[in-house]
Design a protein around this nucleic acid. Structure first.
Lengths: 187, 187
DNA sequence: GTTTTTCATTCACATAGGTGAACAAAGGAA
DNA sequence: TTCCTTTGTTCACCTATGTGAATGAAAAAC
């Protein structure tokens, strides 16, 4: 069974018929390694469900790629602010591996929630997930030192070293690659 | 005219009739200085519009009050995660001054958006505002040093020193009161 | 395969911010 | 007013993380 189907079945309580109806609105799209889901300046018109692979979110600040999020299988991919506000994206979202997304167009989502109001659940879950992630990140940055942020990340995403280069991990943690190296050698 | 009325008129394009209908769903509540809008462990059932006064959001971490947000006139007050997810709040929201909120119950909001779908605009604006604030905070914590975070905050809320004790400002910036003092004397 | 580029490690040194103490200033309560 | 509590400042010293360079390892390109 597809990840997206079991995700929707397990996360919400939709009937088989509803699930079919929902799934019909998604389209499957493959992304090559390094291909973009969204680039700075573009309008984000879709939410994507990661069926396979992974993506990073980043901004270019002072010429450096600053990683602000990761998405793996069963995560949603989208730029909330651009999607909701209908404004150009400030961030880039790029596949790190060959990946597959189930895409749902924002207009189609609106349409779908007209005929199936329960779909708003998906929408608010998405919002909540994004919001929770970003506040948690700010909280960690304030309250934990780099070593503890690293350990918290490992706990949350144990396989991250297998799938993301270390300098991206360092960037996400808000430290330099050398510092992450030092932290790892201290353990 | 009430702040809430001009806010809604200026931010969205509702007809006078719609505005009247919307405003009827809000109730005005006064808060004494130090009175709570929401305490850790409670379920957040309202969004509040700050008509007058101000509020801080904080968590207790290692026995310390860690400020994670401020709300002044024309800001919304709510704990998004608790409100949407129907889970106990992890944070406290407290009036710093004698304040007034226009409260809208979440169930009433649902009801209202049935009869007046445009109300969803308010809702998504709220979500977007919260989301934007928290990602911006994380971005600042990663990319700016304490001095620049302080200057960014002053630019965003120029009157903050008149209305919030300095040690709360330091906490929000993720530094100690002594450090903020040092930064201020360097300028 | 070989070469080139990218990524990770280590080191010596620099710097921002934390720590704890002492003190001053401001504000509330009486 | 006076006293007491809260808030802000300054200082000397400490620690975590940044910086830049050198080196090695791994991956990609040829």
């Amino acid at each position: 069974m597809k990840n997206i189907q079991s995700y929707i079945e397990n996360t919400f309580s939709f009937s088989p018929l509803e699930i079919e109806k929902i799934l019909k609105c998604f389209t499957l799209k493959s992304f090559q390694k390094k291909e973009y889901f969204l680039r700075e300046g573009q309008y984000c018109k879709n939410v994507g469900f990661v069926e396979k692979g992974n993506f990073i979110y980043y901004q270019i600040i002072n010429g450096e790629e600053k990683i602000c999020d990761f998405a793996f299988e069963n995560d949603w991919v989208s730029h909330y602010k651009s999607l909701l506000g209908n404004i150009p994206s400030e961030i880039n979202i790029k596949a790190l591996e060959n990946s597959e997304l189930y895409l749902l167009n924002i207009d189609k989502m609106e349409e779908l929630s007209q005929t199936l109001p329960k779909v708003n659940l998906i929408r608010s879950t998405l919002a909540e997930q994004y919001f929770t992630k970003s506040t948690q990140r700010a909280t960690n940055l304030i309250n934990l030192d780099a070593k503890n942020r690293y350990q918290a990340l490992l706990k949350e995403i144990p396989f991250i070293h297998q799938r993301v280069p270390q300098y991206y991990i360092a960037s996400y943690l808000g430290i330099k690659p050398q510092s992450l190296s030092r932290i790892r050698s201290e353990k």
